[in-house]
Design a protein around this nucleic acid. Structure first.
Lengths: 246, 246
DNA sequence: CGGCCTCATTTTGCATTCATTTTTTATCTT
DNA sequence: AAGATAAAAAATGAATGCAAAATGAGGCCG
């Protein structure tokens, strides 16, 4: 007997760019669960009872468990033996490591992009850059961040390396929930720096200076990391205090 | 009823460095299957009937299928809908991409290593380097390759980034079977070049010149890639000819 | 004689069931 | 009353059963 209360399955969710394997229940479930987790719909460290998810998704435990195993392999959740699944709690160290790996991958993407990028693609990135500059001038954080992400994705796409793109998407998914909250909210100085770095990125890209671009991208992401970690540490302290204080 | 003909389960195989999750049947199966595939015990593109694997491993299909899903997520096998698992056939393009990603990760590892590596670790790598040089002088390919791999692993270890190490191990596993056969068998010139590059790597490492080391490592791996792809293309042509010719 | 269609067999996908382990709760002891 | 203990409830891990899809064989038609 299949419970019918849950959400419909068919609507393939719009995703984070990782591999899509449609049409098989567990594949569909995987996509939906991944997005669900990545979007941050479940609090960190929270237990995820299988039964509940089954009802929510309207399926039996078998395909669900298969999907959970994959998500665990991707690093999104933790699977404690005999104790079920938990949303993976990222320690500060984990985040530092993830940011560094992302930096390495983008650095690589920039280097490869210089070998293959077309003038049209560069023009498109320039267009995004100036649009982003507009958001910066208007202090529109949300718009800025969105375009910023598109620029970085464009660079990864220009690398013409599907394996790299998939790996990048995977790591991006792991830190996505943190990344959203890890902007230089009030740090205007850092924001200005980031803009300058982006100009340098564009410049190196125009000149197809792969090695140089690689360096700039790494440093850029490194600075992002520092800002994000600081921000997150403050946020966690705050929530810890709230939790403790009542 | 559990068939008892198969191999015993308990012996945790020595592995490729990816995450270990012992003690749960599917975890044990995952380790064994991964090693089994990585070692190249199954020909490329071959179908792997679940039933047969179940008998071989002495388990039911449920944990096996969970393990297969994970291996597919890791990129070691392919899971065609309703058509079962195949050992993933790596196209030449796939290999190029994989080598580039490996190059990027090692490049990153070198950069990070320069920030944290101790004098003792450098000394250890130097020791390996000279040992490798000995193998080079004696034209001992196998010994050379083994030490070479240990050097690269040492650099990754020195990066002090567990996330990076796991990703590196994953990608290394995917191309392991190819890598073994992808040496500069008769190309003595390339071998000499590789030795020179290794000296440059050591030099940059001693000076903790992260950005420079990053460049050198990338180029080093890039050259390796070229050699490997060429070698593999020849090998595939040969086997194709053999298969066609009878 | 070769290509196509139909049917039997095999294999995969999923649900259900059984066995263990964990977690909770109620009771008992100190 | 607090802690420990044991039984009950719930959740996980694995196996089995059933339906659907794919593969292969055999016959039919051109």
């Amino acid at each position: 007997m299949i419970p019918e209360g849950g959400a419909p399955i068919a609507q393939s969710a719009s995703g984070n760019g990782t591999d899509r394997q449609e049409a098989s229940l567990h594949g569909e479930i995987l996509l939906r669960l991944r997005d669900y987790v990545v979007e941050g719909n479940i609090p960190e460290g929270a237990r995820v009872p299988e039964r509940q998810l089954c009802e929510m998704l309207g399926i039996s435990r078998t395909p669900l468990r298969e999907a959970l195993k994959v998500l665990a392999a991707e690093g999104l959740i933790e699977l404690l033996p005999n104790r079920g699944a938990r949303i993976r709690q990222l320690s500060q160290r984990d985040l530092e490591e993830l940011f560094d790996v992302m930096a390495g991958l983008e650095s690589l993407a920039g280097r490869l992009a210089c070998e293959a990028i077309t003038d049209e693609e560069i023009a498109e990135i320039e267009r995004l850059h100036y649009k982003m500059y507009g958001h910066y001038l208007h202090r529109d954080m949300h718009g800025y961040f969105q375009i910023n992400q598109r620029i970085h994705e464009s660079i990864v796409a220009a690398a013409r390396n599907e394996t790299l793109r998939a790996a990048y998407a995977n790591f991006a998914g792991r830190i996505r929930r943190v990344r959203y909250s890890a902007n230089f909210a009030r740090k205007r100085q850092r924001w200005a720096e980031a803009m300058r770095e982006h100009e340098a990125i564009l410049d190196a890209l125009r000149r197809r200076a792969g090695s140089e671009l690689s360096d700039i991208l790494f440093e850029h992401l490194r600075n992002k990391r520092t800002a994000a970690i600081e921000h997150l540490a403050e946020a966690r302290e705050a929530t810890a205090a709230t939790a403790a204080g009542g």
